[in-house]
Every structure is written in structure tokens, then in C-alpha cells.
Amino acid sequence: MPQLNPEFFVSQLFWLFVFFSFLLVFLWRISLPRIATVLEKRQKNIDENLSSAKELKEQALEIEKNINLQLSKAKEEASQEVKKTVLELQEEVSFKLKTLDKDLEAKILKSEKEILKNKDDQMKNINNEIKNITKATIEKISDLKLPDNVINETIKSYKGNSS
């Protein structure tokens, strides 16, 4: 078995020591720090990205909150504006209705007065006619010539009776 031949034991141990020491020192001082740097850099990058994403998310939430606040504010303002306008319009309408009522009342009063006046005039005319007819009728029937005032009195008294 060549493994148990001590001829090259020293040589093997020597070169093992040389190469393994070299490997250990090289990896320890050069290779492993490099890999560790890369891994740390990557982890740092990931952490940074995560934290910036978190920050951005918070900002987005803040913005959303603001938008909602402004939206509700605007809604409230709009509804108040609508209410105000409705009230104003109602006031205007009632004012216009009032003035219209006044005008109508005045017009009605005027019309009533005119009607009364017309009625009086007509009544006068009617009385006159009645007097004339009565006078003419009496003259035809009895040749009596009654003065106007007597006839008028009679008619008036009659009217008084009839009423």
C-alpha cells in the first residue's frame, strides 16, 4: 500500500503545509473579504431599497390622506354653496311673489273702484231711464204732468219698499 510507505511522508507534509498555508492566507486576506464586501454591498442595497420603498409608501399614504381631506372639504364647500344658492333663490322667489301680490292687490283695488264707479254710473243711468220711462208712461196713461223730483221720490220710495 503506497500510503503507508514513509519515504515521502516528509515531502507530503511539507508541501501540504506550504500549499494549505498559502490557501488559508490567500482566502483569509483576499478572496473572502472580497466576497463579503459584495454580499454586504448587496444587503445594504436591498435594505436601502426596502427602506426607500417604505418611505415612499408612507408618502403615498400621506398624499392619499391629503387628497381625501381636500376632497371631503370640497364636497362640503360645494354642498354649502348649493344650500346657500337654494336659500338665496327661495328668498328671491318669495320677494318676487310678495311684490307680485302687492301689484295684484293694487290692481284689484283699482279694478274694484272702477267697477264700483261704473256700477254707480250705470245705476244712475238706469234710474234716469226708469224715470223717463215712468214719466212717459204716466203721461200717456193720464196726461198728468208730474215734476221730475216727484217721480224720483216715488221711484226711490218704491225701491225702498222693494228692497
Partner: peptide, 28 residues
């Protein structure tokens, strides 16, 4: 007085160390 000949075993160790160091250095 000791025989420290560079043998095929030492050569395999040399290749091993070269492969490791070169690979870990060049790839990173």
C-alpha cells in the same frame, strides 16, 4: 537532510490551490 521532493501529490495540491484561488478571485 529531509526529502521534500515535489511529487505528483504536491502537483495535485498545487492545482487544487490554483483552482480555488483563481476561481474565487476571478469570479468576484
Amino acid at each position: 537532510g529531509y526529502n521534500i521532493s515535489f511529487t505528483n501529490s504536491s502537483f495535485a495540491m498545487l492545482i487544487t490551490v490554483l483552482v480555488i484561488t483563481l476561481f474565487l478571485t476571478l469570479t468576484v
